[in-house]
Design a protein around this nucleic acid. Structure first.
Length: 317
DNA sequence: CCTACATCTTAACTTATGCC
DNA sequence: GGCATAAGTTAAGATGTAGG
């Protein structure tokens, strides 16, 4: 089949070649033999009248034209996928799709665990691949490698639709054994204490709350950095350390470990976790259904206000 | 400088498909 | 049915790198 004299199958090969920068690995990905892929590259070279990939030592390096083609080719294939995969009717009860969602483990804990529980009832054959946000997350979304991304404002990927999913505030979490029942955290005590930080976004050495705290001039001493939120309780229990965490997560942990949630003595902004999807998958009924499930689950999250600011002991009230 | 290894290219042959 | 063409496979050759 030809489209303007181009065999469209060659675009699939080109996409794999540009992604892998290797004939052998592209062949593997395409379930073709390596020679067949090499021949396809030959035909692509003839069509574009360009070497596309040139051998530099052991690797293949894309020419400037090939560099220019990477994104448009990927986009075109994604659009084709959307058109061909879309079904006018989407039936969750029989749908067998697998969705890949990237988010922090905080979002998995407070939201996605419940989303997956609900999905198991509504769409028993649906599968979920939950992954951690990483420095490659923008490429993952761009290339269609993931269906959804849930991220705070500063990690939202430009060029794709996004909407706020739920809000949260920051609270502090301390070991119950190290505080008396009337304990209130003062600002001075906060800055004097040792803190547990959470490295956020895979190797970026940025702690989540530090992003929010950056406007404060005072420095905290983070004597432990955890690789994810889930490990924070292990690093708090039995120590005088403090962790500054999203309130919903802090409450979740306080319900499972001997930990207490206390109001944060410094003003940290309220923040939102945002839902993102690929611009070409806007109309994919399965993804629309999943987005709706996420919205509904987020809407059912317990209200923040009442418990986040525990009733102040007002005299005479 | 040679060898081992990985990877790309080429040649020869096979298989599938479309057309008369 | 028979041919032409396209596209795949296997096998062998060519090329480049790393390491002794």
């Amino acid at each position: 089949m030809r489209f303007n004299k181009l065999d469209l199958n060659l675009l699939v090969v080109l996409d794999a070649l540009l992604a892998t920068r290797s004939v052998s690995r592209a062949a593997e990905r395409l379930f073709l033999s390596q020679p067949a892929t090499s021949l396809a590259l030959g035909r692509l070279r003839e069509y574009f009248d360009d070497e596309l990939l040139v051998s530099v030592g052991k690797t293949l390096v894309p020419t400037p034209l090939a560099e220019q083609l990477v994104k448009p080719v990927r986009d075109v294939l994604l659009q084709i996928q959307t058109v061909t995969r879309a079904r006018p009717t989407f039936d969750p009860a029989t749908a067998t799709r697998r969705f890949t969602i990237e988010s922090s483990d905080y979002v998995i804990t407070v939201l996605l665990a419940e989303v997956v529980r609900r999905a198991a009832r509504l769409a028993p054959l649906m599968q979920f691949d939950l992954r951690a946000i990483s420095p490659q997350t923008p490429e993952h979304l761009d290339s269609g490698g993931i269906e959804l991304l849930i991220a705070p404002e500063f990690a939202v990927v430009a060029g794709h639709p996004a909407e706020p999913l739920f809000e949260d505030t920051f609270s502090c979490l301390v070991c119950e054994a190290h505080v008396d029942p009337a304990f209130e955290l003062s600002s001075d005590a906060y800055f004097d204490a040792a803190h547990v930080g959470v490295e956020w976004g895979g190797g970026r050495r940025i702690t989540y709350d530090a992003k929010m705290l950056s406007r404060s001039r005072r420095q905290r001493r983070q004597d432990v950095i955890a690789p994810n939120f889930t490990l924070v309780p292990e690093l708090l229990v039995g120590t005088p350390r403090i962790a500054t965490l999203p309130t919903r997560l802090a409450r979740h942990m306080a319900a499972r470990f001997p930990l207490r949630v206390v109001p944060c003595p410094i003003a940290l902004p309220r923040f939102a976790e945002n839902l993102q999807w690929h611009k070409y998958q806007e109309r994919d009924p399965a993804i629309s259904w999943l987005r709706e499930l996420l919205r509904a689950t987020a809407a059912d999250l317990p209200a923040l206000e009442e418990a986040s600011h525990p009733p102040r002991r007002r005299r005479g009230a």
